[in-house]
Design a protein around this nucleic acid. Structure first.
Lengths: 196, 196
DNA sequence: GCCAAAACGGAACAGTGTTCCGTATCGTTT
DNA sequence: AAACGATACGGAACACTGTTCCGTTTTGGC
Protein backbone atom coordinates (compact mmCIF):
# COMPACT_ATOMS: atom_id res chain seq x y z
CA UNK A 1 0.00 0.00 0.00
CA UNK A 2 1.33 3.39 -0.94
CA UNK A 3 0.43 6.33 1.23
CA UNK A 4 2.40 8.85 -0.74
CA UNK A 5 -0.38 9.51 -3.20
CA UNK A 6 -2.88 10.54 -0.56
CA UNK A 7 -4.43 13.62 -2.04
CA UNK A 8 -1.45 13.87 -4.34
CA UNK A 9 -2.93 16.31 -6.76
CA UNK A 10 -1.51 19.27 -8.61
CA UNK A 11 -1.89 21.20 -5.37
CA UNK A 12 0.93 19.19 -3.83
CA UNK A 13 3.41 20.56 -6.30
CA UNK A 14 2.89 24.02 -4.90
CA UNK A 15 3.87 22.84 -1.44
CA UNK A 16 7.30 23.07 0.03
CA UNK A 17 9.06 19.75 -0.01
CA UNK A 18 9.55 19.68 3.76
CA UNK A 19 5.78 19.98 4.09
CA UNK A 20 5.21 17.07 1.72
CA UNK A 21 7.76 14.99 3.54
CA UNK A 22 6.21 15.74 6.92
CA UNK A 23 2.76 14.82 5.74
CA UNK A 24 4.16 11.56 4.48
CA UNK A 25 5.96 10.86 7.75
CA UNK A 26 2.82 11.70 9.71
CA UNK A 27 0.77 9.26 7.69
CA UNK A 28 3.26 6.49 8.31
CA UNK A 29 3.31 7.32 12.00
CA UNK A 30 -0.48 7.27 12.09
CA UNK A 31 -0.63 3.89 10.37
CA UNK A 32 1.76 2.50 12.96
CA UNK A 33 0.00 4.13 15.89
CA UNK A 34 -3.44 2.97 14.73
CA UNK A 35 -2.10 -0.54 14.40
CA UNK A 36 -0.74 -0.71 17.91
CA UNK A 37 -3.12 1.53 19.84
CA UNK A 38 -6.20 1.75 17.65
CA UNK A 39 -7.64 4.81 15.98
CA UNK A 40 -7.88 6.55 19.34
CA UNK A 41 -4.13 6.79 19.66
CA UNK A 42 -3.37 10.20 21.21
CA UNK A 43 -2.42 12.90 18.72
CA UNK A 44 0.70 13.61 20.69
CA UNK A 45 1.89 10.04 20.23
CA UNK A 46 1.45 10.26 16.50
CA UNK A 47 3.22 13.60 16.30
CA UNK A 48 6.16 12.43 18.36
CA UNK A 49 6.39 9.12 16.48
CA UNK A 50 6.75 11.26 13.38
CA UNK A 51 9.27 13.48 15.15
CA UNK A 52 7.07 16.46 14.45
CA UNK A 53 5.27 19.13 16.46
CA UNK A 54 1.56 19.20 17.17
CA UNK A 55 1.11 22.27 15.04
CA UNK A 56 2.49 20.42 12.04
CA UNK A 57 0.13 17.54 12.54
CA UNK A 58 -2.87 19.82 12.76
CA UNK A 59 -1.87 21.86 9.75
CA UNK A 60 -1.80 18.77 7.56
CA UNK A 61 -4.80 17.09 9.16
CA UNK A 62 -7.06 19.76 10.61
CA UNK A 63 -8.96 17.18 12.60
CA UNK A 64 -8.33 13.66 13.77
CA UNK A 65 -11.00 12.51 11.36
CA UNK A 66 -8.96 13.77 8.42
CA UNK A 67 -6.03 11.69 9.57
CA UNK A 68 -8.18 8.57 9.86
CA UNK A 69 -9.67 9.17 6.43
CA UNK A 70 -6.24 9.61 4.91
CA UNK A 71 -5.00 6.38 6.48
CA UNK A 72 -7.92 4.23 5.38
CA UNK A 73 -8.97 5.92 2.17
CA UNK A 74 -7.55 3.21 -0.06
CA UNK A 75 -9.19 0.37 1.79
CA UNK A 76 -12.54 2.14 1.83
CA UNK A 77 -12.26 2.75 -1.87
CA UNK A 78 -11.39 -0.87 -2.46
CA UNK A 79 -14.46 -1.95 -0.52
CA UNK A 80 -16.64 0.41 -2.51
CA UNK A 81 -15.27 -0.81 -5.80
CA UNK A 82 -15.79 -4.43 -4.85
CA UNK A 83 -19.56 -3.97 -4.72
CA UNK A 84 -20.40 -3.96 -8.45
CA UNK A 85 -17.85 -6.72 -9.07
CA UNK A 86 -19.48 -8.96 -6.50
CA UNK A 87 -22.91 -8.23 -7.88
CA UNK A 88 -21.77 -9.26 -11.34
CA UNK A 89 -20.07 -12.41 -10.14
CA UNK A 90 -22.40 -13.79 -7.51
CA UNK A 91 -25.17 -16.28 -8.14
CA UNK A 92 -27.82 -14.00 -6.66
CA UNK A 93 -27.94 -10.39 -5.49
CA UNK A 94 -28.47 -11.59 -1.94
CA UNK A 95 -25.28 -13.64 -2.13
CA UNK A 96 -23.44 -10.59 -3.42
CA UNK A 97 -24.82 -8.50 -0.59
CA UNK A 98 -23.68 -11.08 1.94
CA UNK A 99 -20.19 -11.14 0.47
CA UNK A 100 -19.96 -7.39 0.39
CA UNK A 101 -21.11 -7.12 4.01
CA UNK A 102 -18.40 -9.64 4.87
CA UNK A 103 -15.83 -7.39 3.26
CA UNK A 104 -17.14 -4.39 5.15
CA UNK A 105 -17.14 -6.25 8.45
CA UNK A 106 -13.65 -7.59 7.90
CA UNK A 107 -12.41 -4.11 7.22
CA UNK A 108 -14.05 -2.57 10.29
CA UNK A 109 -13.17 -5.37 12.68
CA UNK A 110 -9.49 -5.13 11.88
CA UNK A 111 -9.33 -1.39 12.60
CA UNK A 112 -9.34 -1.13 16.35
CA UNK A 113 -11.91 1.34 17.52
CA UNK A 114 -12.89 2.57 14.08
CA UNK A 115 -16.44 1.23 14.19
CA UNK A 116 -16.95 2.83 17.59
CA UNK A 117 -15.62 6.17 16.44
CA UNK A 118 -17.94 6.13 13.45
CA UNK A 119 -20.83 5.98 15.87
CA UNK A 120 -19.43 8.14 18.62
CA UNK A 121 -21.57 11.14 17.77
CA UNK A 122 -18.55 13.26 18.60
CA UNK A 123 -18.79 16.31 16.36
CA UNK A 124 -15.11 16.03 15.55
CA UNK A 125 -15.84 12.85 13.61
CA UNK A 126 -18.63 14.14 11.43
CA UNK A 127 -16.27 14.35 8.50
CA UNK A 128 -15.25 10.74 8.91
CA UNK A 129 -18.83 9.61 9.15
CA UNK A 130 -19.75 11.60 6.07
CA UNK A 131 -16.86 10.16 4.12
CA UNK A 132 -17.87 6.60 4.88
CA UNK A 133 -21.49 7.22 4.04
CA UNK A 134 -20.72 9.07 0.82
CA UNK A 135 -18.36 6.40 -0.35
CA UNK A 136 -20.12 3.22 0.72
CA UNK A 137 -23.81 4.00 0.93
CA UNK A 138 -24.40 4.05 -2.85
CA UNK A 139 -22.71 0.66 -3.14
CA UNK A 140 -24.77 -0.82 -0.36
CA UNK A 141 -27.92 0.67 -1.84
CA UNK A 142 -27.16 -0.83 -5.24
CA UNK A 143 -26.76 -4.30 -3.76
CA UNK A 144 -29.84 -3.91 -1.63
CA UNK A 145 -31.93 -2.69 -4.52
CA UNK A 146 -30.81 -5.58 -6.67
CA UNK A 147 -31.83 -8.05 -3.98
CA UNK A 148 -35.15 -6.33 -3.57
CA UNK A 149 -35.77 -6.35 -7.31
CA UNK A 150 -35.02 -10.07 -7.29
CA UNK A 151 -37.63 -10.40 -4.54
CA UNK A 152 -35.08 -12.00 -2.27
CA UNK A 153 -35.38 -9.75 0.76
CA UNK A 154 -37.78 -7.61 2.72
CA UNK A 155 -38.19 -3.99 1.73
CA UNK A 156 -38.42 -2.22 5.08
CA UNK A 157 -34.69 -1.91 5.74
CA UNK A 158 -32.95 0.85 3.82
CA UNK A 159 -29.27 0.89 2.94
CA UNK A 160 -28.31 3.47 5.56
CA UNK A 161 -29.96 1.54 8.36
CA UNK A 162 -28.33 -1.67 7.23
CA UNK A 163 -24.90 -0.09 7.02
CA UNK A 164 -25.22 1.51 10.41
CA UNK A 165 -26.48 -1.72 11.88
CA UNK A 166 -23.63 -3.75 10.46
CA UNK A 167 -21.15 -1.10 11.52
CA UNK A 168 -22.57 -1.19 15.01
CA UNK A 169 -22.24 -4.95 15.16
CA UNK A 170 -18.51 -4.51 14.61
CA UNK A 171 -17.99 -2.30 17.64
CA UNK A 172 -15.75 -3.86 20.23
CA UNK A 173 -15.25 -6.98 18.15
CA UNK A 174 -11.49 -6.52 18.07
CA UNK A 175 -10.99 -6.75 21.81
CA UNK A 176 -13.47 -9.48 22.62
CA UNK A 177 -12.57 -13.02 21.62
CA UNK A 178 -16.00 -14.34 22.62
CA UNK A 179 -17.79 -12.02 20.24
CA UNK A 180 -18.15 -12.88 16.57
CA UNK A 181 -19.21 -9.83 14.61
CA UNK A 182 -18.91 -11.63 11.30
CA UNK A 183 -21.34 -14.31 12.34
CA UNK A 184 -23.80 -11.80 13.74
CA UNK A 185 -23.69 -9.77 10.56
CA UNK A 186 -24.43 -13.00 8.72
CA UNK A 187 -27.44 -13.61 10.93
CA UNK A 188 -28.63 -10.10 10.21
CA UNK A 189 -28.31 -10.63 6.47
CA UNK A 190 -30.16 -13.92 6.85
CA UNK A 191 -32.88 -12.05 8.67
CA UNK A 192 -33.36 -9.82 5.64
CA UNK A 193 -34.69 -12.81 3.73
CA UNK A 194 -37.63 -13.24 6.05
CA UNK A 195 -40.59 -11.95 4.05
CA UNK A 196 -42.38 -9.17 5.79
CA UNK B 1 -39.87 4.82 40.42
CA UNK B 2 -38.32 5.24 43.81
CA UNK B 3 -34.62 5.88 44.02
CA UNK B 4 -34.50 6.11 47.76
CA UNK B 5 -34.08 2.40 48.29
CA UNK B 6 -30.98 2.10 46.13
CA UNK B 7 -28.76 -0.18 48.11
CA UNK B 8 -30.83 0.63 51.16
CA UNK B 9 -29.52 -2.15 53.33
CA UNK B 10 -28.72 -2.38 57.03
CA UNK B 11 -25.44 -0.65 56.19
CA UNK B 12 -27.29 2.56 55.48
CA UNK B 13 -28.43 2.79 59.06
CA UNK B 14 -24.86 3.20 60.18
CA UNK B 15 -24.41 6.22 57.92
CA UNK B 16 -24.82 9.75 58.99
CA UNK B 17 -28.08 11.16 57.81
CA UNK B 18 -26.45 14.00 55.85
CA UNK B 19 -24.58 11.34 53.91
CA UNK B 20 -27.80 9.47 53.16
CA UNK B 21 -29.48 12.68 52.10
CA UNK B 22 -26.60 13.63 49.82
CA UNK B 23 -26.58 10.24 48.16
CA UNK B 24 -30.28 10.64 47.55
CA UNK B 25 -29.85 14.12 46.11
CA UNK B 26 -27.02 12.95 43.90
CA UNK B 27 -29.14 10.16 42.49
CA UNK B 28 -31.93 12.57 41.65
CA UNK B 29 -29.45 14.94 40.05
CA UNK B 30 -27.98 12.07 38.03
CA UNK B 31 -31.42 10.99 36.83
CA UNK B 32 -32.11 14.52 35.66
CA UNK B 33 -28.68 14.97 34.08
CA UNK B 34 -28.84 11.64 32.27
CA UNK B 35 -32.24 12.56 30.94
CA UNK B 36 -31.12 15.87 29.48
CA UNK B 37 -27.50 15.19 28.56
CA UNK B 38 -27.24 11.41 28.40
CA UNK B 39 -25.18 9.14 30.59
CA UNK B 40 -22.04 11.03 29.64
CA UNK B 41 -23.15 14.12 31.49
CA UNK B 42 -20.02 15.61 33.11
CA UNK B 43 -19.54 14.65 36.75
CA UNK B 44 -19.21 18.30 37.65
CA UNK B 45 -22.65 19.01 36.26
CA UNK B 46 -24.20 16.29 38.34
CA UNK B 47 -22.40 17.40 41.49
CA UNK B 48 -23.40 21.02 41.04
CA UNK B 49 -26.97 20.10 40.18
CA UNK B 50 -27.04 18.33 43.51
CA UNK B 51 -25.40 21.32 45.20
CA UNK B 52 -22.59 19.08 46.35
CA UNK B 53 -18.83 18.89 45.93
CA UNK B 54 -17.00 16.50 43.65
CA UNK B 55 -15.52 14.67 46.61
CA UNK B 56 -18.98 13.87 47.89
CA UNK B 57 -20.06 12.47 44.57
CA UNK B 58 -17.02 10.24 44.32
CA UNK B 59 -17.35 9.01 47.88
CA UNK B 60 -20.86 7.76 47.25
CA UNK B 61 -20.21 6.54 43.74
CA UNK B 62 -16.55 5.65 43.42
CA UNK B 63 -16.83 5.49 39.67
CA UNK B 64 -19.20 6.85 37.09
CA UNK B 65 -20.30 3.29 36.42
CA UNK B 66 -21.61 2.97 39.98
CA UNK B 67 -23.73 6.03 39.45
CA UNK B 68 -25.17 4.67 36.24
CA UNK B 69 -25.88 1.31 37.85
CA UNK B 70 -27.63 2.98 40.75
CA UNK B 71 -29.79 5.04 38.43
CA UNK B 72 -30.90 2.18 36.20
CA UNK B 73 -30.82 -0.75 38.60
CA UNK B 74 -34.58 -0.97 38.89
CA UNK B 75 -35.18 -0.96 35.17
CA UNK B 76 -32.52 -3.57 34.56
CA UNK B 77 -34.05 -5.74 37.24
CA UNK B 78 -37.49 -5.31 35.73
CA UNK B 79 -36.14 -6.40 32.36
CA UNK B 80 -34.50 -9.44 33.90
CA UNK B 81 -37.66 -10.42 35.72
CA UNK B 82 -39.76 -10.09 32.61
CA UNK B 83 -37.90 -12.93 30.92
CA UNK B 84 -39.46 -15.93 32.63
CA UNK B 85 -42.89 -14.30 32.54
CA UNK B 86 -42.66 -13.81 28.79
CA UNK B 87 -41.50 -17.37 28.31
CA UNK B 88 -44.50 -18.64 30.23
CA UNK B 89 -46.99 -16.46 28.41
CA UNK B 90 -45.78 -16.53 24.80
CA UNK B 91 -46.95 -18.96 22.18
CA UNK B 92 -43.41 -20.14 21.43
CA UNK B 93 -39.99 -19.64 22.99
CA UNK B 94 -38.91 -17.73 19.91
CA UNK B 95 -41.80 -15.32 20.33
CA UNK B 96 -40.82 -14.84 23.97
CA UNK B 97 -37.24 -14.19 22.96
CA UNK B 98 -38.37 -11.60 20.44
CA UNK B 99 -40.51 -9.84 23.01
CA UNK B 100 -37.73 -9.85 25.56
CA UNK B 101 -35.26 -8.44 23.07
CA UNK B 102 -37.79 -5.72 22.34
CA UNK B 103 -37.87 -4.84 26.02
CA UNK B 104 -34.08 -4.77 26.16
CA UNK B 105 -33.84 -2.60 23.07
CA UNK B 106 -36.50 -0.20 24.32
CA UNK B 107 -34.63 0.18 27.56
CA UNK B 108 -31.27 0.84 25.92
CA UNK B 109 -32.54 3.13 23.21
CA UNK B 110 -34.19 5.46 25.68
CA UNK B 111 -30.99 5.90 27.73
CA UNK B 112 -28.87 8.29 25.72
CA UNK B 113 -25.39 6.94 25.32
CA UNK B 114 -25.82 3.94 27.59
CA UNK B 115 -25.43 1.33 24.88
CA UNK B 116 -22.27 3.04 23.68
CA UNK B 117 -20.80 3.21 27.13
CA UNK B 118 -21.49 -0.49 27.66
CA UNK B 119 -19.24 -1.17 24.68
CA UNK B 120 -16.73 1.59 25.18
CA UNK B 121 -14.03 -0.70 26.48
CA UNK B 122 -13.11 2.07 28.90
CA UNK B 123 -11.83 0.33 32.01
CA UNK B 124 -13.87 2.68 34.17
CA UNK B 125 -17.01 1.01 32.91
CA UNK B 126 -16.07 -2.58 33.55
CA UNK B 127 -18.31 -2.64 36.59
CA UNK B 128 -21.27 -1.47 34.56
CA UNK B 129 -20.65 -4.04 31.89
CA UNK B 130 -20.32 -6.78 34.47
CA UNK B 131 -23.53 -5.74 36.15
CA UNK B 132 -25.50 -5.91 32.93
CA UNK B 133 -24.05 -9.26 31.97
CA UNK B 134 -24.56 -10.77 35.40
CA UNK B 135 -28.12 -9.62 35.58
CA UNK B 136 -29.36 -10.18 32.04
CA UNK B 137 -27.24 -12.92 30.54
CA UNK B 138 -28.91 -15.77 32.46
CA UNK B 139 -32.30 -14.53 31.34
CA UNK B 140 -31.24 -14.30 27.73
CA UNK B 141 -29.64 -17.71 27.93
CA UNK B 142 -32.82 -19.24 29.31
CA UNK B 143 -34.90 -17.86 26.46
CA UNK B 144 -32.32 -18.88 23.91
CA UNK B 145 -32.05 -22.39 25.30
CA UNK B 146 -35.80 -22.79 25.27
CA UNK B 147 -35.95 -21.76 21.63
CA UNK B 148 -33.13 -24.12 20.78
CA UNK B 149 -34.82 -26.98 22.61
CA UNK B 150 -37.96 -26.27 20.62
CA UNK B 151 -35.80 -26.48 17.50
CA UNK B 152 -36.85 -23.02 16.46
CA UNK B 153 -33.46 -21.40 16.00
CA UNK B 154 -29.89 -22.09 14.99
CA UNK B 155 -27.46 -23.14 17.66
CA UNK B 156 -24.30 -21.26 16.74
CA UNK B 157 -25.15 -18.00 18.45
CA UNK B 158 -24.68 -17.97 22.20
CA UNK B 159 -26.49 -15.71 24.62
CA UNK B 160 -23.55 -13.40 25.24
CA UNK B 161 -22.96 -12.80 21.56
CA UNK B 162 -26.65 -12.14 21.00
CA UNK B 163 -26.85 -9.69 23.88
CA UNK B 164 -23.76 -7.85 22.77
CA UNK B 165 -25.02 -7.75 19.22
CA UNK B 166 -28.40 -6.40 20.20
CA UNK B 167 -26.77 -3.91 22.55
CA UNK B 168 -24.52 -2.77 19.75
CA UNK B 169 -27.47 -2.28 17.43
CA UNK B 170 -28.84 0.22 19.93
CA UNK B 171 -25.80 2.46 19.86
CA UNK B 172 -26.55 5.89 18.51
CA UNK B 173 -30.20 5.09 17.96
CA UNK B 174 -31.32 7.92 20.23
CA UNK B 175 -29.78 10.69 18.18
CA UNK B 176 -30.51 9.40 14.71
CA UNK B 177 -34.09 9.59 13.48
CA UNK B 178 -33.28 7.64 10.32
CA UNK B 179 -32.01 4.65 12.26
CA UNK B 180 -34.42 2.06 13.64
CA UNK B 181 -32.65 -0.13 16.18
CA UNK B 182 -35.86 -1.93 17.09
CA UNK B 183 -36.45 -3.03 13.56
CA UNK B 184 -32.85 -4.14 13.09
CA UNK B 185 -32.96 -6.15 16.28
CA UNK B 186 -36.10 -7.76 14.91
CA UNK B 187 -34.30 -8.65 11.71
CA UNK B 188 -31.49 -10.16 13.74
CA UNK B 189 -33.93 -12.28 15.73
CA UNK B 190 -35.57 -13.33 12.48
CA UNK B 191 -32.16 -14.36 11.24
CA UNK B 192 -31.81 -16.72 14.16
CA UNK B 193 -34.57 -18.85 12.69
CA UNK B 194 -32.60 -19.61 9.59
CA UNK B 195 -31.50 -23.21 10.05
CA UNK B 196 -27.76 -23.62 9.89
C1' DG C 1 22.98 36.17 -0.03
C1' DC C 2 18.41 38.18 0.79
C1' DC C 3 13.96 38.00 2.29
C1' DA C 4 9.02 37.19 2.10
C1' DA C 5 6.19 33.45 2.25
C1' DA C 6 5.51 29.00 4.07
C1' DA C 7 5.91 25.74 7.57
C1' DC C 8 7.35 24.41 12.11
C1' DG C 9 7.22 23.48 17.29
C1' DG C 10 5.38 23.36 21.44
C1' DA C 11 3.39 26.21 25.10
C1' DA C 12 -1.17 27.32 26.39
C1' DC C 13 -6.22 26.56 26.53
C1' DA C 14 -10.43 24.10 27.46
C1' DG C 15 -12.70 20.12 28.86
C1' DT C 16 -12.65 15.48 30.60
C1' DG C 17 -12.48 11.94 34.95
C1' DT C 18 -10.29 11.22 39.37
C1' DT C 19 -7.54 11.93 43.73
C1' DC C 20 -6.43 14.16 47.93
C1' DC C 21 -6.55 16.48 52.15
C1' DG C 22 -7.68 20.46 55.17
C1' DT C 23 -12.11 21.75 57.06
C1' DA C 24 -16.79 21.30 58.71
C1' DT C 25 -20.45 18.60 60.52
C1' DC C 26 -22.60 15.05 63.14
C1' DG C 27 -23.81 12.20 66.99
C1' DT C 28 -22.21 10.06 70.93
C1' DT C 29 -20.23 10.21 75.37
C1' DT C 30 -19.23 12.52 79.35
C1' DA D 1 -24.44 21.23 77.55
C1' DA D 2 -19.89 20.69 76.10
C1' DA D 3 -16.34 18.22 74.21
C1' DC D 4 -14.46 15.20 71.03
C1' DG D 5 -13.55 11.55 67.64
C1' DA D 6 -15.39 9.60 63.63
C1' DT D 7 -17.54 10.69 59.47
C1' DA D 8 -18.43 13.36 55.54
C1' DC D 9 -17.73 17.51 52.88
C1' DG D 10 -15.77 20.79 49.24
C1' DG D 11 -13.08 22.02 45.75
C1' DA D 12 -8.27 22.73 44.41
C1' DA D 13 -5.02 20.01 42.00
C1' DC D 14 -3.59 16.32 38.86
C1' DA D 15 -3.33 13.66 34.63
C1' DC D 16 -4.91 13.13 30.27
C1' DT D 17 -7.51 14.33 26.32
C1' DG D 18 -8.07 17.34 21.54
C1' DT D 19 -7.23 21.84 19.65
C1' DT D 20 -5.54 26.67 18.92
C1' DC D 21 -2.13 30.16 18.53
C1' DC D 22 1.90 32.60 17.62
C1' DG D 23 6.96 33.44 17.89
C1' DT D 24 10.67 31.06 15.45
C1' DT D 25 12.79 28.50 11.76
C1' DT D 26 13.18 26.80 7.13
C1' DT D 27 12.65 27.09 2.35
C1' DG D 28 13.27 28.54 -2.36
C1' DG D 29 12.82 32.17 -5.87
C1' DC D 30 15.20 36.42 -6.93
Amino acid sequence: MNQSDEGAGPGDRARRKDARRNKETLLEAAVAAFLTSGVNAPVRDIASRAGVGLGTLYRHFPTRADLIIAVYRHQVDACAEAGPALLAAAATPHAALRQWIDLFVDFLVTKHGLAAVLRSGDSGFEGLHTYFVDRLLPVCAELLDAAISAREIRTDIDALTLMRGVGNLCIGAESDPGYDARRLAGVLVDGLRAPR
